[in-house]
Simulated scan of single mutants.
Amino acid sequence: MRVSSSTPLRRSGRSGGPGRLGPLPWIGPAVLLILLVVVWPVYEMVRTSFLRISVSGFVRGSAGLDKYRKLFDESALPSVLVSTVVWTVVVVGLTMLVSLALAQLFNQRFPGRRVTRWALIAPWAASVLMTAIGFKWMLDRTAGVLNTLMADLGLIDGPRDWLGDPSTAWPWMMFVAVFVSLPFTTYTLLAGLQTVPGEVYEAAKVDGAGTAQTYWRITLPLLRPAFLVGVVINLINVFNSFPVIWGMTRGGPDSDTATTTVFMYQLKSSDIGESAAMSVVNFALVLVMVVLFLKVSRWNKEES
Rank of each mutant, 00 (worst) to 15 (best):
M1H: 06
R14E: 02
G17F: 04
R20H: 03
L21Y: 10
I27P: 02
V37P: 03
V38Y: 10
V38I: 10
V42I: 09
V46C: 08
R47A: 09
S49I: 00
F50C: 04
R52S: 10
A63Y: 04
D66I: 11
F72E: 08
A76I: 01
A76Y: 07
L77G: 04
W87C: 01
V90R: 02
V91S: 06
V92T: 12
S99L: 08
F106M: 08
R114K: 00
V115G: 01
R117N: 05
A125W: 15
A125M: 15
A126K: 11
M138A: 12
D140P: 02
D140E: 12
R141H: 04
R141L: 04
T148H: 14
L149N: 01
L149R: 03
D161F: 02
W162H: 00
L163M: 06
S167C: 01
S167N: 04
A169S: 02
S181M: 08
L182Q: 01
T186L: 08
A191I: 15
G198Q: 15
V200M: 13
Y201E: 06
K205C: 08
K205V: 09
V206K: 12
D207L: 01
G208M: 04
R217E: 01
L223W: 07
L228K: 07
I233H: 06
I233A: 07
N237A: 12
N237H: 10
V238P: 01
W246S: 15
F263K: 04
S270A: 08
L292C: 04
R298H: 14
W299N: 05
